[in-house]
Design a protein around this nucleic acid. Structure first.
Length: 495
RNA sequence: GGUGUUGUAGCCAAAAGGUUCAGGCGCAGCUCUGCAAAAGCUGUUAUAUCGGUUCGAAUCCGAUCAACACCUCCA
């Protein structure tokens, strides 16, 4: 079966065929580093991390570009044009670049914890002012952009004469041009639908660059066009981002690039859906933002406890990326328990003897396990259905646990199947879904714990329940649980 | 007002015209057990409402209601 992806442009699932195999170019809109990342930001970067990992798994040579928006966009024409980043910097008495650096570091820190792979290139907007300026010059030369008072705008009406502006987002160009909204500083534009490519910087504006039109700063959409073209070429495979970027951001990107390169820039547009909280999108205006630092620490009124990055990752992957994911404390608690159950089974699996070429005694079960494993790649091929992959793995968990409890005889499965289970769990859980066992303990700590476990075992066999209970009770207070197995052995684990 | 999406059991959530079924969490019962925990088994079995198409619909069509998103910085 071939990989099929949902293309926002055609609104259909399409077979994924790279433009230039085995190479795949993927661009994902990265964070604006004017503030701390929140739970909502986790979704696209985790979603596209899995896309990246799966493409690599399939053997593609992927160049994954994810930008850092550090130029500080003006807040659009509605409000007074201003630089978000420099405004915040004044409040915090920081240099804009200092602020940008702080939040970039924080972003990297959080997403390392989420176990996302680093992109191949992580270009910054401020590092590509020259590319953006030359793209704007090209647009002016071709007659699709015009300068007014040191600002440059894209002429949407002109573009719409020969192209379909609104194709990606389902907008109707007439509606966009006829919108009755009156916005400030609109008088510079020929049409209300026009968008800024370059904005003249007001005197107090700190972030500013020289340009053919005077000092100013780039418009919002041009950076992604400039950087994606530079690093992936004028026509590349995948462009990803949140659904909220469909319009106007991605629509405008298409328009700019189409004029500069004489053809559309992207083959497959992939958009992830939003995370809602109590049915509402997370956003500053709703006052319901949970920052990642608050999530990891549990320090937030909506949270009863801290949640680890892996639990969040698992929580996100339990839902298909194009569905809305509704957040609640209860749902996260469920995810935490589920993830733990999965990894405990994986640990048990790894301790099962494989080795010698043994036939399984339970043929039917053996076949069933193998056919479940056969399905895993088909789920991912179907537009990255991580939810189904996880569900299928959960279906195998009772079998693994039963093998350990000897409810099912150890030789029920063939050694080949056991080896395959070990391998597939590793590949799907760790390599593709990027999940990690956070409760795993190694080194001296592990040795000490095993020693305590064996002391408890001895004590129990002598019916010295004072000692055995003391060990269990005091470890429990430290957050370590001891469990007695059927065979008299004692196992343990971090809570 | 325009555009689009969604409505699945206590909660999260998958699937999408047809046999048994998603899956996770929770809850209940049983088994195991020095106690406990875990585990296993069983149960909790749903498709917003009203019509229509069909031999058959959660799935297709229409209407209604509700919610959400985008149209403005936003993942």
């Amino acid at each position: 079966m071939a990989l099929v992806v949902y293309n926002s442009l055609s609104r259909k699932k399409e077979v994924f065929t790279p433009i230039n195999p085995p190479y795949v170019g993927m661009y994902v809109c990265g964070p604006t580093v004017s503030g701390e990342s929140h739970l909502g930001h986790a979704r696209p970067y985790i979603t596209f991390d899995v896309v990246y990992r799966y493409l690599l798994h399939l053997g593609y040579k992927v160049r994954y570009v994810r930008n850092i928006t550090d130029a500080g966009h003006f807040e659009e024409e509605g409000r007074e044009a201003e630089d978000k980043i420099s405004k915040k910097a004044q409040l915090e008495r920081m240099e804009p670049m200092e602020l940008v650096h702080k939040y970039t570091s924080l972003f990297h820190w959080a997403f390392r914890k989420f176990n996302t792979l680093e992109p191949s290139i992580e270009p910054t907007a401020t590092g590509h002012i020259i590319e953006q300026i030359s793209m704007i010059e090209d647009l002016i030369k071709k007659g699709y952009a015009y300068e007014v008072n040191g600002s440059v705008y894209f002429d949407v009406a002109k573009y719409a004469e020969g192209h379909d502006y609104g194709k990606l987002s389902g907008r109707v160009i007439e509606d966009l041009l006829e919108t009755t909204r009156t916005l400030e500083s609109q008088e510079e534009k020929k049409n209300k639908a026009d968008f800024a490519l370059w904005k003249a910087a007001p005197p107090k504006h700190i972030m500013r660059w020289k340009s053919p039109w005077g000092e100013g700063f780039p418009g919002w959409h041009i950076e992604c066009s400039a950087m994606s073209t530079k690093y992936l070429g004028s026509y590349f495979d995948i462009h990803g981002g949140g659904m909220d970027l469909l319009f106007p951001h991605h629509e405008s990107e298409i328009a700019q690039s189409t004029i500069c390169n004489s053809h559309a820039p992207v083959k497959y547009w992939i958009h992830n859906n939003m995370i809602t909280i109590n049915g509402r999108k997370m956003g500053k205006s709703y006052n319901n933002v949970i920052r990642l630092t608050e999530l990891f620490s549990g320090n937030h009124p909506l949270l009863t406890k801290a949640y680890s990055p892996m639990v969040i990752r698992f929580f996100i992957l339990q839902t298909h990326y194009r569905s809305v994911l509704d957040f609640s404390n209860e749902a996260l608690e469920g995810s935490e328990k589920g993830l733990r159950r999965l990894f405990e089974a994986f640990e048990i699996l790894n301790s099962l003897p494989g080795g010698e070429n043994r036939e399984g005694t339970a043929k039917e079960l053996d076949t069933k396990i193998n056919s479940t494993l056969d399905e895993l790649p088909t789920f991912l091929d179907d537009d990255f259905n991580t939810a189904k992959v996880l569900a299928a793995m959960f279906e195998i968990v009772p079998t693994i646990n039963s093998l350990k409890e000897k409810i099912i005889p150890v030789d029920a499965l063939s050694s080949k199947t056991i080896e395959r289970l070990k391998n597939d769990f590793h590949v799907y859980l760790e390599e593709i879904l990027g999940l990690k066992n956070e409760w795993e303990v190694t080194g001296a700590f592990k040795g000490v714990m095993n020693l305590l476990a064996s002391i408890r075992k001895d004590a129990r066999s002598k019916k010295d329940y004072y000692t055995s209970d003391k060990i269990r009770k005091e470890l429990a207070e430290l957050g370590i649980d001891m469990k007695d197995e059927k065979d008299g052995n004692v196992s343990w684990g971090l809570r």
